[in-house]
């Protein structure tokens, strides 16, 4: 039990919270057909975080967010610039900008001597849920002891803050998000500022990417943003239900995915270790596959 609390519990919480915060934001990316934007955000926050760390010398969440937010803003401006000035197709512009930004992050990271720390490229790419440990835990009583709780990995605190901000924004702006995703032109005619609401979605996506980066990595952020909402969409026609179901799918993916990684190999007698970030994404993908095969709201492909 103590070993579970020290090693598995914090990692399980991190993986699950990361999946949850990404899935909640992902609903609005999927609805506005910006799924790949989620991928881009995940990639571009990486150089932002590296630069912010090099400048400030700390991984405090506000520093990380400032770096990530700046990187997201620079990306948006560059994409807009390429689109307007150079006449490049938007998805091409996005593809060019986010890969270039990501490459810049990799170069900076390698030159900075940060490799080998928690900023290891491998971990940035694939995530490292297992790095979250709780040595202070001594038994179930630790869960109710403020002193030991305060020694939980800082990552969990960051994820909780991110989750709180994302949840509060979605609850407060639910009707604005719904109308701007559905009919931005009509939203503009009633003075609901679609560009502002769109910027809020972008900001939430950057926030989710930053806080979940350590746990799931830039490549899997997009899986967490897309799979649970896309699964939920196939199970309901109600947006509120979709958001709730996506949260349930994300939590289930986090728990099952971690369980598979941590316990399945030894249970089957294999001596190998699975990265939990990867198994969480695979489980989320399996949920989506099941929904695509059997979900009640599947639609036949439209014949053009």
């Amino acid at each position: 039990m103590t070993e579970f609390l020290q090693i598995d519990f914090p990692a399980l919480i991190c993986g699950t919270l990361a999946a949850l915060v990404c899935a909640l934001v992902g609903n609005f990316l999927v609805l506005t057909r910006q799924s790949m934007f989620g991928d881009a955000v995940g990639h571009v926050v990486f150089p932002g975080i590296v630069i912010a760390y090099l400048l400030a010398g700390t991984t405090a969440i506000w520093v990380m967010l400032a770096g990530a937010g700046t990187a997201a803003l620079v990306t948006a401006l560059l994409v807009e610039f390429l689109r307007r000035i150079a006449g490049v197709d938007p998805s091409t512009a996005l593809g060019a900008v986010f890969t270039a930004m990501f490459a810049l992050g990799v170069v900076l990271l390698e030159q900075s001597g940060l490799a080998g720390t928690s900023f290891d490229v491998h971990h940035i790419l694939y995530g490292n849920v297992e790095a979250a440990i709780w040595p202070a835990a001594t038994g179930p009583a630790s869960l109710f002891n403020m002193d030991t709780l305060s020694q939980l990995p800082a990552q969990i605190g960051r994820l909780m803050i991110g989750l709180g901000l994302v949840t509060a924004t979605i609850l407060l702006l639910f009707k604005e998000l719904r109308i701007v995703c559905f009919d931005p032109v009509f939203a503009a005619t009633i003075g609901l500022r679609p560009k502002l609401v769109g910027a809020v979605i972008t900001a939430l996506a950057a926030l989710a990417a930053v806080v979940s980066l350590e746990a799931v990595g830039v490549i899997l952020v997009v899986a967490m943003m897309v799979c649970p909402p896309a699964t939920a969409r196939l199970l309901t026609d109600d947006l509120r239900m979709q958001v709730v179901i996506s949260a349930v799918v994300a939590i289930a993916s986090g728990i099952l995915g971690y369980g598979v990684a941590a316990f399945l190999p030894s249970a089957l007698g294999f001596d190998l270790s699975l990265g939990a970030a990867g198994t969480i994404a695979v489980v989320a993908g399996l949920f989506q596959l099941a929904a695509m095969l059997a979900g009640p709201k599947r639609r036949p492909a439209r014949v053009a």
Partner: peptide, 13 residues
């Protein structure tokens, strides 16, 4: 707006 301007697959009644 014109009917074609929105996504009718949107999860809304």
């Amino acid at each position: 707006p014109q009917r074609s301007s929105v996504d009718w697959d949107f999860p809304a009644t």
